[in-house]
């Protein structure tokens, strides 16, 4: 590193310090607690490995996170494509549409969903008008998924758009003049080039959906707990910091595993990993 670089590097210290104090230190504390609370030993991880409720919670969380990732990816892709291929004006309008939910609190949005989805809510009233039996959505995983997907959408759309706007618009045209019909030009040229954006968005959405607390607490059911809610119960209601720590460590390992998996898939597919997150 040249002296000039090291001098500028000083400016990064406050941020590094914040990450160290605000992230690394607490994680270290959790790690330590998971093997020391209430007494030193591996009892917390043994509990995690043998307790079927804990397993259910973990699998359910992963299942919901995977579904949320898939649903947002499928819904976000056409929207991002539209944004990337529109004029600057239309793109700005669509951008506001994406960011709109950001300006409302998560809590407010969860309550809005309660109003819509509850037994005598907006949805069932409308369905009733068509003679359709009322649906039980509130208090199920479906409600949790709906609430989560809505909140997560911008995290999927934005990385997608930033990769898509970088795709040379003449590439699909080049494929077409070489004899490829529209759909083939899209599938063989545009889509593969947009994948880094899909990967980046999926990674963020998946990781974020493992940590949702308010939405499942308000829209889901206590019998269908997810990791964050179980953590809350363990730590703040049962004061079992050790079990909570073990659960948190397990989540961290899961995130690491998903990261690694995506990294490998990207590598096999020849997608530059540097581009993942490049859109953030």
């Amino acid at each position: 590193m040249s002296t000039k670089q090291s001098r500028t590097a000083v400016l990064a210290w406050p941020a590094l310090l914040l990450v160290a104090l605000g992230f690394i230190v607490p994680v270290a504390i959790i790690l330590v607690m998971s093997v020391t609370d209430p007494q030193p030993g591996t009892q917390n991880f043994e509990w995690l490995a043998t307790n079927s409720t804990a397993h259910d919670i973990m699998w359910r969380t992963i299942y919901i996170a995977v579904l949320a990732t898939l649903i947002t990816a499928v819904l976000a892709y056409p929207f991002a494509y539209l944004m990337a291929t529109s004029s600057t004006l239309v793109r700005s309008i669509l951008m506001v549409v994406v960011l709109l939910p950001f300006w409302t609190s998560m809590m407010v949005r969860a309550f809005a969903w309660i109003i819509i989805l509850q037994k005598n809510g907006l949805l069932n009233t409308v369905l009733g008008a068509f003679g359709i039996e009322p649906l039980t959505i509130l208090g199920t995983n479906t409600a949790v998924l709906i609430g989560m997907c809505q909140i997560l959408m911008p995290f999927m759309v934005l990385p997608m758009v930033s990769v898509m706007v970088g795709i040379d618009s003449r590439l699909p045209l080049a494929a077409r003049i070489m004899g490829a019909p529209k759909w083939k030009a899209f599938l063989q040229v545009y889509f593969p080039l947009s994948l880094p954006g899909v990967f980046a968005g999926s990674l963020i959405v998946f990781i974020l959906s493992l940590g949702f607390y308010v939405t499942p607490a308000l829209l889901g059911s206590p019998r269908q707990q997810l990791i964050p809610n179980a953590l809350f119960t363990q730590v703040l209601e049962l004061l079992s910091w050790g079990k909570g720590g073990a659960l948190a460590v397990a989540t961290l390992v899961m995130v690491g595993a998903v990261f690694l998996l995506l990294f490998l898939v990207a590598k096999v597919m020849g997608i530059k990993i540097g581009k993942i997150g490049g859109g953030l």
Binding site: L173, I177, M178, G179, P181, A185
Partner: peptide, 10 residues
């Protein structure tokens, strides 16, 4: 005629 059936190189 659509682009891909014009038999043109570019």
């Amino acid at each position: 005629i659509p682009i891909h059936r014009r038999n043109i190189g570019m």
